[in-house]
Design a protein around this nucleic acid. Structure first.
Lengths: 125, 125
DNA sequence: CAGAATCCCCCATGATACTG
DNA sequence: CAGTATCATGGGGGATTCTG
């Protein structure tokens, strides 16, 4: 880790923390998927955000886009080795989240009962 | 990993992806720090966001807050075991980011030269 | 089917000023 | 020093409509 990496690392971190990126990557874990397949699977996502997320992932080299020139068009998205690599790290993070959700929930509960009024002042509370 | 964890995991993930949380956690890696110490170190952060981020971290059991009743007041923030645990996972993620920044940069460059106009249409482009 | 274009809203964040 | 209160804003994200 050298100096000056902060901005770049922050950029990548915020991409991971982005609302949809991780969900898309996890959705592609098993097999390539079409646009509307992804949309149905993630469901809460809008077409606009799915398109934007996929485009960003393709640009970053995490996902490939393959279109046939059939009609109706079919476009397949798949993870690249880089994306698959990220999947592993993200999965560790998710695993940590699952393993520690008890502790976090307990901490919140105790904080909130000790300090009921502060609750809504906290971000994402 | 059971069903229904998605929301909770997503919540924790978005906390990690939050603009300041990771920076604060990393800043506390070596030793406890005071409010303005943190502010000077992170620098770009506003007092408001630092306060909000710290409060959220305390509520989630990642950070402890210890205040002396001196005057002027001194408040120390430190990582809990849970926070220190998260630090490890986050560090893996940061490490991944550092190790793969070359690949990502290359992918972006190639994408952008192949498709110059799309550049500003992409989120966080 | 796979998106692009448009409109709109709201919340996270920033800047500034104030306080115990 | 360690915050809080208030106001302003920008862009992330949703809903809808349109197209190749």
């Amino acid at each position: 880790m050298v100096e000056g990496d902060c901005a770049e690392v922050g950029d990548i971190l915020s991409r991971v923390g982005d609302k949809w990126t991780v969900l898309v990557i996890v959705a592609l874990a098993d097999k390539p998927m079409h646009f509307n397949e992804l949309k149905r699977l993630i469901d809460a996502i809008s077409a606009k955000m799915l398109a934007a997320t996929l485009k960003a992932l393709v640009r970053d080299g995490m996902v490939t886009r393959h279109a046939t020139d059939d009609l109706p068009p079919r476009v397949s998205y798949d993870l690249t080795p880089l994306g698959r690599n990220l999947l592993l790290v993200v999965r560790d993070l998710a695993l940590w989240a699952v393993n520690n959700r008890g502790g976090i929930r307990a901490a919140r509960l105790s904080y909130d009962t000790a300090n009921p009024l502060a609750r809504r002042l906290i971000k994402a509370g």
